[in-house]
Amino acid sequence: MNFELLKPAISEITEHALLSNEEKLKNICQFLQQNISYYNWVGFYFANHETQTLHLGPYVGAETDHTVIPFGKGICGQVAESNANFVVPDVAAQDNYIACSFTVKSEIVVPLFVDGINIGQIDIDSHVINPFSAADERFLEFVNEQVATLF
């Protein structure tokens, strides 16, 4: 996967003057799911620091019951506390994993920072074991840098 070829489209989405931020985030999710074969569920969670919870934002993929996740719970909740990327090559081997679907085999979560504060994250599930590389991490960090300009 040549992620460099995808970067201009991400920038174009975030810079689109006629779309709301919600529409931009949804379009990014759709773009990623359509252009990266192993990105089967793509979504954003946003932090409420007062309640120490994450709240589901725009996403594409199978419906999820996990619309609110406490900090520390599951992969997303751990990223809310650690402020670090978390790659799970095989969710079956992960102790603190919130199962979304039996089809999910791996997950990557990359925090979203605005002015140095972790305001949320991009969360991606895959139906493939161990598809995520350092290149995915760097690309998703770029995606989040672009998304951060919306806030």
Rank of each mutant, 00 (worst) to 15 (best):
Y38N: 08
K105E: 14
N48C: 10
Q30N: 14
H49P: 01
N96H: 11
L32N: 03
N27M: 12
N96P: 02
T103H: 10
N21P: 04
V110C: 14
A92G: 06
N85M: 03
Q34L: 13
L140R: 03
E137A: 05
W41S: 13
F139P: 13
T14W: 02
A148N: 14
F139S: 05
Y45C: 01
D123V: 09
V87I: 15
L32K: 01
G43F: 01
G77W: 07
N118H: 11
I10S: 05
M1P: 03
G120W: 01
F71C: 03
F71Y: 15
S11Q: 14
D125Y: 12
L18D: 14
C100S: 11
A148M: 08
F132C: 08
K105V: 00
Q94S: 04
H55C: 01
T67G: 03
L25G: 04
P8R: 12
E23S: 14
T53S: 13
N35E: 12
T53R: 12
P58C: 05
A92D: 15
I117K: 14
H55W: 00
N27I: 07
S106P: 09
D90S: 10
N2Y: 09
N2F: 05
L112H: 05
V110F: 03
L56F: 03
P8L: 10
P131Y: 07
A135F: 00
I75K: 00
Q33H: 14
D123I: 13
P8I: 13
G61E: 07
V60Y: 01
I129Q: 13
G43I: 02
A93Q: 15
N48V: 03
F102H: 10
K24Q: 09
Y97G: 11
P89L: 09
Y38W: 13
A47L: 04
A148C: 11
Q78G: 06
L19T: 07
A62T: 12
D123H: 10
N144Y: 05
E4Q: 12
I108K: 01
T14R: 06
C76H: 03
G116T: 08
Y97P: 08
V60R: 04
D95M: 09
L54I: 05
I98D: 08
D115Y: 06
F142W: 13
A17N: 05
I122R: 03
Q78P: 00
I36H: 01
Q146H: 05
A92S: 14
I69N: 04
H16W: 10
L54G: 09
A135K: 06
I69Q: 00
L5D: 07
F31N: 12
N40T: 09
I75Y: 06
G43W: 00
D123Q: 12
H127W: 11
H66D: 12
G61P: 02
Q146M: 08
H16S: 06
